[in-house]
């Protein structure tokens, strides 16, 4: 492996190392330089011994958008928890749900993971399956009563996607949100037949 490749791998592991150090310090329960340094050593050893593929290629960290994402996330968590709790506790017939297919516009492993995680916690949705190649998710939503509810839930999924991408996505991913149908490379190949 050339030195360049090693350096490239090192910088790609930086977010992982930072995350591991954070967990290490939290586990020790107090902030001290001894903790940070020993955590750094442990993190470097772990990342060198068990290297993972880099996932942050299309990811950025935009503090303002992240804050707004977190705010909406907590609000949605509260709302959807109360919703599901009410659906569980209310008298009457069993709750009804729906299974929908949602096509996303994002094409990044990390962002798709974040979107799927967020969707499972908020707003009344749970990811059943993901087709990575076509950026499509099979989503189970609850509670729904009619088709209008289903469409509302579908819109909610796309709103969550937009918030996640605006908070953590690269400018290319954000551009894909506004574009007609996501990044052209793969979509163009798929849609070659039906020119829009």
């Amino acid at each position: 492996m050339s030195p360049d490749a090693l350096v490239g791998r090192g910088t790609r592991q930086l977010p992982v190392i930072a995350w591991l150090v954070l967990i290490w310090v939290l586990l020790w329960g107090s902030f001290s330089w001894a903790n940070v340094l020993s955590g750094l050593v442990a993190a470097v050893v772990v990342t060198v011994a068990f290297p993972l593929p880099g996932v942050t290629e299309h990811a950025r960290f935009r503090p303002l958008a992240v804050l707004s994402f977190l705010g909406f996330f907590l609000r949605d968590l509260a709302v959807s928890s109360v919703q599901v709790a009410w659906a569980a506790a209310r008298p009457g017939p069993p709750v009804r749900s729906a299974v929908i297919v949602v096509e996303l516009r994002t094409d990044s492993d990390l962002l798709l993971t974040l979107i799927a995680e967020t969707l499972s916690l908020v707003p009344g949705s749970m990811v059943l399956d993901i087709d990575r190649m076509h950026r499509t998710m099979l989503v189970h939503v609850l509670p729904v009563t009619d088709e209008a509810d289903v469409e509302r839930q579908r819109a909610d999924v796309l709103v969550v996607e937009e918030r996640v991408v605006r908070a953590f996505g690269s400018s290319r991913e954000i551009a894909a949100l506004d574009g007609p149908d996501g990044p052209p490379a793969e979509a163009a190949a798929d849609d070659a037949g039906r020119n829009r």
Partner: peptide, 16 residues
């Protein structure tokens, strides 16, 4: 109890 069941049980397998 499903209001809508898009794609049926094949799910996303049709795409694959």
């Amino acid at each position: 109890l499903l209001v809508v069941h898009e794609a049926g049980f094949a799910g996303l397998a049709d795409l694959q």
